[in-house]
Design a protein around this nucleic acid. Structure first.
Lengths: 135, 135
DNA sequence: GTAGGGCTTCCAGTCACTGGAAGGTCAAGG
DNA sequence: CCTTGACCTTCCAGTGACTGGAAGCCCTAC
């Protein structure tokens, strides 16, 4: 299977697949003409990578996960620890975003949004928040 | 005020302030010895930038916001539209992260996490999800 | 005069791709 | 046999928003 088909089947752009080879995540065979040739095993790995990336794991996490996946002697505790670490980061990120969202929407609600220059959003950003300091 | 003090007062790393000058967000004066010299006005801008970045606005958003801030003829509607656009992106991002979080925590909960190799997390990533397809 | 801390510039690296140029390969149609 | 077009190859550069580090100047204190 050449890269176009591999791309279609895995949902990963061809560029991304080449990049994954570049950084050593996969090493597809080559046909005589130099084209990459993806076996079923490689397709499984691409699908694995696509899912892991889709869950927000970093490339280095994916490298580790792939090696755990291929290591039949792994301890599931190792995988679980990684996943939990990643979950913690996600939870933290969500909290952060929610805090930003809350602050900004408060400012947005205060802004009448017409053609006059008076703007509580800019005032908030400038630190002129006369009410309770939300920033 | 030189860059060290400006950094302390604004909470922005000196490197970041230099970077902001590089990309034309601020243009502090220079003293005879070549050191940057930050006026009160510049410090206000740095504080503004720090808050805007803290709310997740991109650098280009910040550039626009700063110019609106300095334009006393602005329409608050323009600011509000930007802020709303940004809020939408944040909301979207939060949804995305929550979806990842939900999927991954489901897998984590299924994983016993001991020294045996059997691991629902890896199985899920590999697409061997025998239950309802959560991935 | 020398030690330290702070300042300057410039270059390179981060992360995970993504775009584009220049060129080789292959199957179909004329 | 030639061309056309879709595919593939490699390599280089750019993204966003910094961040780290090297090499060297400036200023103050001892």
């Amino acid at each position: 299977m050449n890269i176009g088909e591999a791309s279609t089947n895995s949902g990963l752009p061809a560029k991304t697949i080449r990049y994954y080879e570049d950084i050593g995540l996969i090493s597809p065979d080559r046909t005589d003409n130099g084209y990459r040739d993806f076996s079923e095993t490689h397709m499984h790995k691409l699908a694995f990578l696509s899912r892991a990336r889709g869950l927000g794991f970093t490339i280095e996490d994916c490298r580790t996960l792939l090696s755990l996946y291929e290591d039949t002697d792994r301890a599931s505790a190792d995988v679980k620890a990684m996943a939990r670490g990643h979950l913690d980061k996600m939870t933290h990120k969500i909290q952060e975003l929610k805090a930003m969202q809350a602050t900004l929407s408060e400012l947005v609600n205060k802004c009448h949004g017409d053609d006059r220059p008076d703007c509580p959003i800019l005032q908030g950003l400038a630190g002129e928040n006369t009410a309770k300091g939300i920033l």
